[in-house]
Each structure stands twice: as structure tokens, then as C-alpha cells.
């Protein structure tokens, strides 16, 4: 454990800093608790019932909507990779801003996504304007 911490401390700059790695690790844990039942542990979704997160044009174009959906859910019909999905997604209202940032960092840096760290500092502002964010295609 100490070795683990030490290795990351020496490596602490740029996008792959220890904070980023902690976000990813914690984000994965939260993802497996709150999200993977439907979106599956490998992010592939389930048929046309639950949309994929791995390889998703929707995720690329609707970053803030995705952030908001974690906490507040998503009721609109959405189009992902050309397919319509309409199963309402329940939000997990108990998620903190930090947890949202961790999940976002995990899903936006897994399965081929490479967005970099999504910082908790930016979450408050996004979550405040959730009502006015429209879908983008």
C-alpha cells in the first residue's frame, strides 16, 4: 500500500496525476454500484433497452446532460449511435458533486473515451443549470 502511494506521488503531474487515478478508481466503484446494472460493467448497454456508454456519440455531444442525468435522471427519448432509447433513467439523487465527478471521470476515460479528468470544482455550476440544458445532436 505504501509502495503504491509512493509510486503515484513521484508520478504526480499532468493528466495522469494521482488525483486522476483516485477519481478513476472511486468512479469505477460507484459505477459498478449505481450504473452497471443497466449499462453493464463493460459499458455495452443491453440491447436497445439500455444504451451503451462505450462508443456513444450521445456521450460525446451531451457532456453536461450526462452529468445531470446521474443525479436527476433522464426522461426524454434520446438517440445514441442512431438508435432511439426511451427507457426512463432514474437519477441517484444522493450522489455528491465529488461522486458525480468521479463517475464522469471513470466513464469518460474508459472503453476508448479519453476526455481526461473531470474536476469536482466544475460540477456545482453544471448541476445548477440542469433544467436549461438541451439535447445536442
Amino acid at each position: 500500500m505504501l509502495v503504491f502511494v509512493a509510486v503515484y506521488s513521484f508520478n504526480g503531474c499532468g493528466a495522469r496525476d494521482p488525483k486522476f487515478k483516485l477519481y478513476v478508481v472511486e468512479g469505477e466503484r460507484l459505477y459498478l454500484t449505481h450504473c452497471s446494472n443497466c449499462h453493464q460493467p463493460d459499458g455495452q448497454g443491453l440491447g436497445l433497452v439500455y444504451p451503451p456508454l462505450a462508443s456513444s456519440d450521445f456521450m460525446d455531444k451531451n457532456f453536461e446532460k450526462v452529468i445531470c442525468s446521474m443525479k436527476f435522471g433522464l426522461k426524454e427519448r434520446i438517440v445514441v449511435n442512431g438508435e432511439v432509447y426511451q427507457q426512463p433513467m432514474p437519477g441517484v439523487s444522493a450522489l455528491t458533486e465529488l461522486e458525480v465527478a468521479e463517475i464522469a471521470t471513470y466513464i469518460y476515460n474508459s472503453w476508448g473515451h479519453n476526455r481526461g479528468m473531470i474536476d469536482v470544482k466544475d460540477m456545482g455550476a453544471v448541476l445548477l443549470r440542469c433544467d436549461s440544458i438541451n439535447l445536442t445532436y
Binding site: N37, Q40, L46, V49
Partner: peptide, 15 residues
Amino acid sequence: TTCRTICPIMKTQML
């Protein structure tokens, strides 16, 4: 269909 807990896992497995 709206169950968010065990049903999605059940449906994954049933599939």
C-alpha cells in the same frame, strides 16, 4: 421494466 435494482441484471442473465 422500470425496476432499477435487480431486474436489469436478471434480464441480462435471462437473455
